[in-house]
Design a protein around this nucleic acid. Structure first.
Length: 214
DNA sequence: ATGACGATTTACT
DNA sequence: GTAAATCGTCATA
C-alpha cells in the first residue's frame, strides 16, 4: 500500500465502522491525502464536516431508503468514498461509514491546506467558475465542499473508491480535536425538522472553515 | 421525452 | 444582500 510518509498510517476499516456523527467528529484533525500521477501529493487537515444520517434524514440523498445509480456508493461498506456532481459544476466528497446497505455518510466541507498549496491554487484558478489566481488566499482554496474537490482534484473518477486501499485518495489519522463547534448543516433548507439539527462540526476558530462558520 | 432542481460558488448591486 | 452559471439525475408521463 502506498504511503506518503513512512510510519504514517491510514484510517482503517474498523474506524469507518461507526455512525456518521461519531465519524464526522473523528475526521476533524485527520488529513485527507490525494496522490496525483506525475504530480505532487496534495493534502489538507479536515476542519469542517457534516453528518448525514440515512433513511430518516430528510436532507440525505438516501432519504426514505432512496437508492439510485447516483447514490449507490452510500450503500457500500464504511471507508468508501461518495463523490457526487451538483449545480451543474461542482463535486462534493463524502466518506461513507457504517455497514453495507446502510447509507450513512460524512460530507467533508473544508480543509486546511498542507501539501501542494501552489498546485491547489492552480487548480482553483482554472476551469469555468474560477477565482483569479492573484486573488486567491490560502483560506479560499478548500473552504467549501466544491472548492476542496476542485483544489484536490476529486471528481467522479473517485466516486466509490475504497479509502482503505486506493492509491489516489485516503485519510490519515490526526490528534483528537479539543475545540469542536457544532451548528446546523448548510444548504438543506428543504429538510424540515432536520434543518436545525446540529449535524455540522468544525474546528472552532479555524480560518479555513466555509464562510458561514467563521 | 421532458422538466424541475440541487449537501455550491462567484460576481455584482 | 441577490442572481447567474450550468448539467446530470430522477420523477413523471
Amino acid at each position: 500500500m502506498r504511503q506518503r510518509v513512512k510510519g504514517v498510517r491510514r484510517l482503517q476499516r474498523s474506524e469507518y465502522a461507526t455512525d456518521s456523527v461519531t465519524l464526522a467528529r473523528r475526521l476533524l484533525g485527520c488529513t485527507l491525502v490525494r496522490a496525483i500521477e506525475d504530480g505532487p501529493c496534495l493534502s489538507g487537515v479536515i476542519v469542517e464536516t457534516e453528518a448525514y444520517c440515512g433513511a430518516p434524514d430528510l436532507a440525505s440523498h438516501a432519504v426514505g431508503g432512496r437508492r439510485t445509480p447516483r447514490n449507490e456508493a452510500m450503500y457500500a461498506q464504511g471507508g468508501t468514498s461518495y463523490v457526487y456532481f451538483t449545480y451543474g459544476m461542482h463535486f462534493c466528497f463524502n466518506v461513507v461509514c457504517g455497514e453495507v446497505d446502510v447509507p450513512l455518510a460524512v460530507l467533508v466541507r473544508a480543509l486546511e491546506p498542507v501539501e501542494g498549496i501552489e498546485e491547489m491554487k492552480r487548480r482553483r484558478a482554472s476551469g469555468r467558475k474560477a477565482m483569479a489566481l492573484e486573488r486567491l488566499r490560502d483560506t479560499d482554496l478548500c473552504s467549501g465542499p466544491g472548492k476542496l474537490c476542485a483544489a484536490m482534484g476529486i471528481d467522479r473518477a473517485l466516486n466509490g473508491v475504497d479509502l482503505v486501499s486506493d492509491e489516489r485518495l485516503w485519510i490519515e489519522p490526526g490528534a483528537e480535536t479539543s475545540q469542536i463547534a457544532t451548528g446546523p448543516r448548510i444548504g438543506i433548507g428543504f429538510a424540515k425538522e432536520w434543518v436545525e439539527k446540529p449535524l455540522r462540526f468544525w474546528v472552532k476558530g479555524n480560518p479555513h472553515v466555509s464562510g458561514r462558520s467563521k
